[in-house]
Computed example of a mutant assay.
Amino acid sequence: MPEVQIRVMVNGRPRTATVPPRLTLADFLREHCRLTGTHLGCEHGVCGACSVLLDGEAVRACLVFAVQADGAEITTVEGIAAADGELSPVQAAFREHHGLQCGFCTPGFVVSVTAFLRDNPDPTDEQIRDGLSGNLCRCTGYQGIIEAVRAAAERPAEHTRTAGT
């Protein structure tokens, strides 16, 4: 199959690449953009470790082909913090409330929670649990993650800061 040229915005930066049509968005981000925060876990869309924002919506980058993202804006975990390195409210809450242990799943959780809180700024614990259901963690037991989401929801700063804004 012939390769396809794509143009995307990744964390606020334009990117152009020629890619095989079946290259996943996760592999494009890791290999072509050198953004390794998008982790590959199950590669079946089950674990959520590869979650990114695609035009503002959380998606599993292992299930999307890079060519499907042509013309889109993509935000990875590297684009969630401010340009000066200040952590987003979600990232700071994960750190402060021990919402991570080994850290492998954390980028996917941070991206998913960022989108979740944008759409649900005052969630109940039941809504938080439901909102987290697409991301798996094998280390923490989830209580610290739930507390981190609750704390991030209570912060006055905007939850949707992405791509270094």
Results as ranks from 00 to 15, higher is better:
Ala69Asn: 03
Ser133Phe: 05
Ser133His: 05
Ala72Ser: 15
Gln68His: 09
Ala49Pro: 02
Ala153Asn: 08
Leu53Met: 05
Met1His: 09
Gly164His: 09
Thr160Val: 09
Asp130Glu: 15
Ala151Pro: 02
Gly108Asn: 03
Glu73Ser: 13
Ala58Gln: 07
Gly79Thr: 01
Val46Gly: 03
Ser88Tyr: 03
Ala26Arg: 14
Arg150Leu: 04
Gln143Asn: 09
Phe116Met: 14
His159Ala: 15
Val67Ile: 15
Val4Ala: 05
His39Arg: 15
Thr38Pro: 01
Gly79His: 01
Pro123Leu: 11
Phe109Ser: 03
His44Ala: 15
Glu86Cys: 00
Phe94Ile: 08
Phe94Lys: 03
Ala151Leu: 01
Leu63Asn: 12
Gly164Arg: 01
Cys42Gln: 11
Glu73Arg: 15
Ser51Ala: 15
His159Phe: 09
Thr36Gly: 13
Ile146Thr: 12
Leu35Arg: 10
Ala115Arg: 14
Pro21Leu: 06
Phe28Glu: 05
Thr114His: 11
Pro14Met: 02
Asn120Tyr: 10
Ala157Lys: 12
Ala81Asp: 00
Arg138Ser: 06
Phe28Asp: 09
Pro20Ser: 13
Val110Phe: 08
Gln91Cys: 02
Gly164Gln: 01
Ala26Gln: 13
Asp130Ile: 04
Arg22Glu: 12
Gly12Asp: 02
Asp27Ser: 10
Ile145Gln: 05
His32Asp: 15
Glu73Phe: 05
Glu147Trp: 00
Gly134Leu: 08
Val111Lys: 13
Arg13Pro: 00
Glu158Val: 15
Pro156Thr: 14
Arg7Glu: 14
His98Thr: 04
Ala83Cys: 00
Phe65Glu: 11
Ala148Phe: 04
Thr16Ser: 14
Gly45His: 05
Thr24Tyr: 04
Gly134Ala: 11
